[in-house]
Amino acid sequence: MATKKPKNIEPEAPRLPSRLDPLNVGDDEWEDKIAFGNGRVEQRTIRDQRADKVAFDAIVFDHVTFDRVTLERVELTDVVFDGCDLSNAIFRDAVLHRVVFVNCKLLGFDLSNATLRNVKFDKCHGQYSMFRFADLKYVGISGSQFEKSDFYDATFSGVEFVDTELDQTQFGGARLAGVDLSGCEFRSIGVTLDGLRGCVVRSDQIESFASLLGVVVKE
């Protein structure tokens, strides 16, 4: 009997008020547990910030650059990053709920051990990004480049990759049952036999897993 592919669920969109006034996030050093909410941050650079448990709620970041920013355990709820640059930003142990990244530069973006719920990455450059030990549920990644990214030992539930470059991405220790990679491009990815079992791929991608068994081939 063929393995039935679980139906992926479309991530829920951020819940934003109809009006968002300009928000001054300030140039002063952020304190731990500082909270920002209900506003827009546009065309600016946030630089050299390092804080723990910062909270962002109902915010649109529009073409904002995060330069040398480390926000451990940051909490993001109903947030949009539009045309932003978060390259090499560190958001380890973050909690993201109803968050969208669109047309963003995410090279080396560190979301290790993060919890992602209802999160979308659309048309993003996420090469070398890190999702090690992350817990992803209802996450969509589409039209993006995530080559050499790292999902080591991540947990997937209702996760969808569409039209995304994944060459040399690492999925070691992760279980990809029900995850559809047939719309993605890669020459090789790092994955274990147990982790690959139940994954959906195209017939022409089988060569990438020549030494592995147990894949579901999508004709």
Rank of each mutant, 00 (worst) to 15 (best):
D67Q: 14
F186I: 05
V159S: 01
V100A: 04
S182G: 06
F161R: 00
L86M: 13
V191P: 02
D153K: 14
F81K: 01
F151I: 01
D52N: 15
R73S: 12
I90V: 14
D153F: 14
G26W: 11
P6R: 05
V119F: 07
L136S: 06
A174V: 04
F61H: 03
L23Y: 08
V80A: 02
T65A: 09
T77G: 01
I34S: 09
T115N: 12
P17M: 06
F156R: 04
L212F: 07
F146T: 03
E72Q: 11
F209N: 01
N38S: 11
L23I: 09
R50A: 10
K105Q: 15
A154T: 01
R47Q: 15
R117E: 13
S18D: 15
H97C: 08
F209Y: 06
C104Y: 07
I141N: 00
S87W: 08
T45M: 09
V201K: 00
D93T: 11
V80E: 11
N113P: 09
L166E: 01
F121R: 04
V74T: 09
R197Y: 03
G172I: 15
F91E: 02
Q145G: 11
N118S: 05
R44E: 14
Q127I: 11
V60R: 06
N103F: 11
R50K: 15
G173F: 06
E219Y: 10
F161N: 00
L86K: 05
G143Y: 10
I141E: 01
D48Q: 12
R15C: 07
L20F: 07
I59F: 02
L16Y: 06
G214W: 02
V99Y: 02
F161T: 01
P11E: 00
V200C: 03
M130W: 12
G172V: 14
V102H: 10
A2G: 07
L106Q: 03
V54I: 15
K4L: 12
F146A: 01
V64E: 02
N8W: 13
C84D: 09
L213V: 13
D32T: 11
Y138A: 04
V100P: 02
D21Y: 15
V64F: 04
F81M: 03
A174R: 02
G83L: 09
K148G: 03
R40Y: 09
F36M: 03
F156W: 09
V200H: 07
S144H: 04
R175W: 07
Y128R: 10
A55W: 13
V60W: 05
P22E: 12
R40D: 09
E42G: 06
F91C: 10
F146V: 04
I9N: 08
T192C: 04
K5P: 03
V60K: 05
E31M: 12
P14M: 01
Q168A: 08
D110V: 06
V217Q: 04
G173M: 05
G26C: 08
